[in-house]
Amino acid sequence: MNKDQPTFPLRFYPAILVIFSSLWLSACDNKPPLQSISMGAPQSTQASLIWLTDDLGFFEEQGIQLDLHAHPSGKRALAAMLRGEVKLAVTAETPFVIASFKRDDLRLYASMGQSDNELRILARRDHGINQPADLRGKTIATQQGSAVHFFLSSFLLYYQLDSTSTSTRFMKAEDLPAALTKGDIDAFSMREPYLSQAKKLIGIDKLVEFSVPGLYTKSYNLVGTADFDNNHPGVIRKILFALNKGANYADKNPDKALQIISRKLQLPQVTVASLLSDMRLSVTLNQGLLITLQEEAQWAVTTGLIKPDKQSDTQIPDFLTRINSTPLEEAIPYAVGLIGIKPR
C-alpha cells in the first residue's frame, strides 16, 4: 500500500464499534416486553402441543410469556380458569360444553389436537368381563362431565348397553385406578396415565381393555373468556400462530417432538409415541367440533348432568356464539372450517 495514501485512523475503530454496539443494544431494548399470560393445561398428551410449543420458545417469539400451570386433567384446568386462577385453559370439549351452560362468556378459540382412540374402557377380567356385552349389570366409573364420560356413553350405545343396563359412578380421575384395584368398580372409562396406573396396580392379566377407534374423537381446545378477548387483543392470535408453528415442527420433526413431549410430560417415549400415534397435533376449528359440542350438550341435558336452577339453564347454548374463530382466521385462515361463522 502506498504510504502516502491517507488511511483511516485505527483509533477510530473502537469508537465505531461502541457506537454500533450501542445502537444494536438500544434496538434490542426497544423490543416490547413479553406479555405474560397464564394458562392451565393438563400434564398429559392431551396438551402435547402446548408443552412442545412452549419448550421450543415459539410463544416468546410472538411476545408471549406463557405461564403454564399443569393440571391432572383439562376439566381441572378449565375449573382453574373459571376460578380465575389462570386466564386460559386447555381442555376437552366436554368440560367446555358443561361449563357453557353456566357461563355464556366462555370462548373456544381452536382445537389443538384430536384423538379418536385415546380413551379406553378398562375392566376387571376377574370380575367376569371379557367382552363389552359382559359389562351389562356391572359398575363402570368415570369422571363426570368429562370426555371419558361422553366416551362411555357412546361406548354403551355402540354395544347396545344403555345407561340402565349398567351402573355408572363418578369420581376423580386420579381415584379411578385405586377404585378398580380395590374392586369398588368393575371397570372405568379413562385415559392415560390412569390406565397404566391401574394395570400396574392390578396386573394386566386381570384386566381387559376395550376400545372402539373412531367412536369418539376427543379434541383438546384452547378456551378463555370474552373479557380476556377484550383485554388482551391479539394475544390469542399470537398463541395460535405459535401453536401452529409447533404443530408444523412436530410434523417435520416427529422424533425431536417426541423427545420434547416425553421430557415435558415426564413419560416414557414409548408411551408418548403410542399415545401420539392416535393423536393429531393440529390447530383447527371444524364444523364437526361444533356438532360435537351440540351433541354433547344434548347428551349432558339428557343424562341429567345439567341440573337447571332455572328453566333457561337447560337450553342448549348457541355454540356459534361461544366460538371465537377470529384469532384463528387471522393466524391460520385455512384452519377454520366452520359453517355459519361470519366470513372474515
Binding site: 379418536d116 357412546s154 350405545l157 373412531g214 383447527t284 371444524n286 364437526g288
Partner: peptide, 30 residues
C-alpha cells in the same frame, strides 16, 4: 338410541373428513 348413536358416529366421520380437509389445506399451504 340407534339414532343417537348414528348421529354421533356420523359426526365422527364428519370430524375426520374435515380434519382431512384441514390437512389438505395445510399441505397446500406448505
Amino acid at each position: 338410541s340407534c339414532h343417537e348413536l348414528q348421529r354421533r358416529l356420523g359426526n365422527q366421520i364428519r370430524l375426520a373428513q374435515q380434519d382431512l380437509l384441514v390437512e389438505i389445506h395445510k399441505i397446500h399451504q406448505r
